[in-house]
């Protein structure tokens, strides 16, 4: 096939949009892992909840944007509740216990959603403002995809500023490295944990909310997302936010171009990319060595 510049450019844009979902999802996972040392196996479940919460909110108020914001808030609160009532009890035990708790949640919640919403998935429509695409010759500029890229950039910038410029961001960065010392400086780390968990889960919910128009919104939609988010985080380096962002963008491009050139490899390609990066750089792109 002849690779015209339009195709390549479009492929890049699609890849960026695809990467945007990865970035949102993985940065949340990375924050949770970095701060709480919890491998959140329910991350995809919160992604799913984000999509369903968007559906519910849109059915109630009819506005996509309100729906997304409501979804992020609702799911963050669910996350906070989960963290405060169940997860918190398991800190300081072996890492496997919080992992299993999250895993349990990832089985339990989809079934609850199935009971409430039934087996037929729900429809979340694209906002009318962002429907369709602008065509320039053979070049399609899909509005929603471009919105995703912009959203990702805004969220990353906001996250960066939050982490760098606010006290709570500073505490999160510090607690990611040494939670005991932070505690010994008069800071109630457990409250920071809740905030960090909410933030991570909120990002997953945002990813689910904006993905909802593009994919089948069903109770099990998050199952593979957990694994893929972990792949992104591993590529970027465990616990590194910048790594999660870069990892997500790389994967987006990989999947986009593999889909063009060797489509039957598209699903495997993300794992191959991970393997390749781990061989070249075992701690991931931005991972620091010797993090405890």
């Amino acid at each position: 096939m002849e690779l015209s510049w339009e195709i390549i450019l479009m492929q890049v844009i699609m890849g960026l949009a695809l990467g945007a979902i990865y970035v949102l999802l993985a940065s949340g996972l990375s924050i949770i892992f970095g701060l709480l040392d919890v491998l959140n196996f329910a991350h995809g479940t919160f992604y799913m909840l984000g999509a369903y919460a968007t559906f519910v909110a849109i059915s109630l108020c009819g506005n996509f944007w309100v729906g997304i914001i409501a979804a992020v808030i609702i799911v963050s609160l669910i996350g906070a509740l989960f963290e405060m009532t169940l997860l918190k009890r398991l800190y300081g035990t072996d890492q496997i216990y919080p992992l299993l708790m999250c895993f349990g949640l990832s089985i339990f919640l989809p079934d609850i959603i199935k009971m409430i919403f039934g087996l037929v998935g729900k429809v979340v429509d694209y906002p009318s403002l962002l429907q369709g695409a602008t065509f320039v010759d053979n070049l399609i500029l899909p509005k929603y995809r471009i919105f995703l890229v912009v959203l990702m950039a805004v969220v990353l910038l906001a996250l960066y500023l939050f982490m760098k410029k606010t006290s709570i961001g500073m505490i999160i960065r510090a607690a990611t490295r040494d939670r005991l010392m932070v505690n010994c400086l008069g800071i109630n780390v457990s409250r920071v944990w809740t905030v960090g968990f909410m933030l991570g889960v909120g990002l997953a919910a945002l990813a689910g909310a904006v993905a909802a128009p593009m994919v089948q919104t069903i109770p099990n939609m998050g199952d593979e997302m957990t694994i893929e988010a972990f792949v992104v985080v591993v590529i970027g380096g465990l616990g590194s936010l910048g790594g999660a962002a870069l990892g997500g963008l790389i994967l987006g491009q990989v999947v986009s171009f593999v889909s063009l050139l060797a489509p039957d490899w598209s699903n495997v390609s993300i794992f191959l990319t991970m393997a390749l990066i781990l061989v070249l750089r075992p701690r991931g792109l931005f991972g620091e060595e010797g993090r405890d």
Partner: peptide, 11 residues
């Protein structure tokens, strides 16, 4: 002021 110093290295 702990013996292993525990400076937060990334701050």
């Amino acid at each position: 002021i702990p013996e292993d110093r525990r400076i937060i290295p990334n701050l």
